[in-house]
Measured scan of single mutants.
Amino acid sequence: AQEYRALYDYTAQNPDELDLSAGDILEVILEGEDGWWTVERNGQRGFVPGSYLEKL
């Protein structure tokens, strides 16, 4: 798994998404072809927009 940093804040719109704060460090589990990536942070897993992340 790769570590990424959130570039922007994101507020989850659905229960299966995660909130992001700019600067958060996340582990990317799966890069979805639809642009939604499965990530894990502090034991929580959910979808976030891949375009909001940069690889560390």
Rank of each mutant, 00 (worst) to 15 (best):
Gly46Lys: 04
Ser21Trp: 09
Pro49Tyr: 03
Gln13Leu: 09
Tyr52His: 08
Gly32Asp: 10
Arg41Pro: 01
Glu31Pro: 09
Arg45Asn: 04
Thr11Asn: 06
Pro15Phe: 05
Arg5Tyr: 13
Arg45His: 04
Ile29Arg: 06
Asp16Cys: 12
Ala12Asp: 00
Thr38Asn: 06
Leu18Val: 09
Pro49Trp: 04
Leu7Asp: 03
Ala22Lys: 13
Glu31Ile: 15
Glu40Pro: 01
Glu27Phe: 15
Tyr10Met: 02
Gly46Ala: 03
Ser21Lys: 15
Phe47Gly: 05
Val39Asp: 00
Asn14Val: 05
Val48Glu: 01
Tyr4Leu: 03
Asp24Arg: 00
Val28Asp: 01
Phe47Val: 15
Asn42Leu: 09
Glu31Lys: 12
Val28Lys: 08
Gly50Arg: 13
Phe47Ile: 15
Leu30Lys: 14
Gly32Val: 06
Asp19Glu: 07
Pro49Asn: 04
Asp9Arg: 06
Gly43Ile: 01
Gln44Lys: 14
Glu17Val: 02
Gln44Asp: 11
Gly46Trp: 03
Leu26Ala: 06
Lys55Ser: 11
Val48Lys: 00
Trp36Cys: 07
Gly43Thr: 06
Ile25Met: 15
Ala6Glu: 00
Leu20Ser: 01
Ile25Tyr: 10
Asp34Tyr: 05
Tyr52Leu: 09
Ser51Thr: 14
Val28Ala: 07
Leu56Val: 14
Arg5His: 05
Pro49Cys: 03
Val39Asn: 00
Asn14Asp: 02
Leu20His: 00
Leu30Gln: 14
Asp19Lys: 03
Asn14Phe: 06
Gly35Pro: 02
Tyr8Arg: 14
Val39Pro: 00
Tyr10Phe: 10
Asp34Pro: 03
Tyr8Gly: 07
Thr11Val: 11
Ser21Tyr: 12
Phe47Asn: 13
Glu33Asp: 12
Gly32Leu: 04
Phe47Glu: 08
Glu40Gln: 08
Ala12His: 05
Arg41Ile: 06
Asp19Val: 02
Gly43Ser: 07
Ala1Tyr: 15
Gly35Cys: 03
Val48Tyr: 00
Gln44Thr: 12
Glu40Leu: 11
Trp37Ser: 07
Leu18Pro: 01
Gln13Trp: 03
Tyr4Cys: 05
Tyr4Met: 06
Arg45Trp: 03
Glu33Val: 10
Gly46Ile: 00
Ile29Met: 10
